[in-house]
């Protein structure tokens, strides 16, 4: 049974791949945010550090 977590940004269900490792970066299937795997047991993720793009200059 694959482990799942809730995306902290949009609430979507994010499924851990079978071979996932702590520190790996996953993408939310709905909002696309990159999530860092903080813990495998219990499954926990947090927003991965992101380089902001310059949209306004």
């Amino acid at each position: 049974m694959s482990k799942t977590v809730e995306c902290p940004e949009c609430g979507a269900t994010v499924t851990f791949p079978e071979d996932v490792m702590q520190g790996e970066i996953l993408s939310c299937p709905d909002c696309g945010i990159e999530l860092e795997v903080l813990s495998l047991d219990p499954p926990q993720v947090g927003p991965a550090p992101e380089e902001e793009e310059d949209w306004g200059e």
Partner: peptide, 27 residues
Amino acid sequence: EKDLWKLYRSAYGPEPFVRLVAQKTGI
């Protein structure tokens, strides 16, 4: 934002021709 996702996902989740596009990454 999470409430917006919940509301719009609930309204359009099964719709074949409405897609939710509010991405945090990419262009």
